[in-house]
């Protein structure tokens, strides 16, 4: 569970200071599929960095599974990222010249998991993300953009995280491929009960989530639960 209370984030000092987040509060239960929306400059990237434990807030508290991570130092944040968070970025998700399987196993490498278990868990995660053994040994530059994002999703899954955080995961994809990737998120959320937070500036993409939090100028302007969410078809390929 994620509980955010009065989070602010400022950059710079004095007159040049810029407040990216001006007091944001919300709670996300386990198993939710939330989209965080807003135009550029709304503070959504800053919020995503804080949610992903890549950065700490200037003030406010962030409870992740009951633990206040807002005051953690670099090394402890790295531990939290390793154990509780799976990232899917817009681009540069995979290590170049490295096989799909090795990419997915990477978080487990840093977690010190043994070689055999790594491979089992990576295989499971790749299957869950809709990829077959056919692709496992391909290098990351030999697969399509849609496949790259799904490998990234598999990697985000592999350490069994509390939260999957996706930052504009469809930003570099065409609409059709983007749909497939969003479908994968929906499937993981629905069938595997994964908590997914999707950061986007597109309405169409946000519409795939159950709940949309909209940010503007560092504040929440709306937090709506949708009942009829847009369904994307998850397909295997």
């Amino acid at each position: 569970m994620i509980e955010i209370k009065d989070i602010t984030k400022s950059y710079g000092e004095g007159d040049a200071a810029f407040q990216a987040l001006k007091g944001v509060t919300f709670t996300i239960e386990d198993g939710e599929f939330v989209a965080i929306m807003g135009p550029s400059g709304s503070g959504k990237s800053t919020l995503m960095h804080i949610l992903g434990c890549l950065d700490t807030p200037t003030s406010g508290t962030y409870l992740l599974d009951g633990k206040d991570v807002s005051t953690f130092d670099d090394e402890r944040l790295a531990d939290i990222r390793k154990d509780k968070i799976g990232f899917v970025f817009q681009s540069f998700n995979l290590l170049p010249r490295t096989s799909v399987l090795r990419n997915v196993m990477l978080p487990l490498v840093y977690a010190g998991v043994g070689e055999k278990e790594r491979e089992e868990r990576a295989t499971k995660a790749l299957h869950a993300a809709g990829l077959t053994e056919l692709h496992f040994q391909h290098k990351s530059n030999q697969i399509s953009g849609g496949q790259i994002q799904r490998v990234a999703i598999a990697r985000a899954l592999v350490n069994d995280p509390t939260l999957i955080l996706a930052d504009e995961p469809t930003g570099n994809l065409d609409t059709k491929t983007g749909e497939i990737v969003l479908g994968t998120f929906q499937k993981l959320n629905k069938e595997h009960g994964r908590t997914v937070i999707l950061i986007t500036h597109e309405h169409d993409v946000a519409a795939h989530a159950e709940r949309i939090i909209t940010l503007r100028d560092g504040l929440i302007v709306s937090d709506s639960k949708k009942h009829a969410r847009k369904h994307a078809r998850h397909v295997h390929d």
Binding site: D74, A78, D79, K82, F89, F92, Y110
Partner: peptide, 16 residues
């Protein structure tokens, strides 16, 4: 640089 960022995001520590 990006690779280092990615590695750190998925849990690599300074020492790693």
């Amino acid at each position: 640089t990006k690779e280092i960022g990615l590695r750190k995001a998925i849990g690599a520590k300074r020492k790693d």
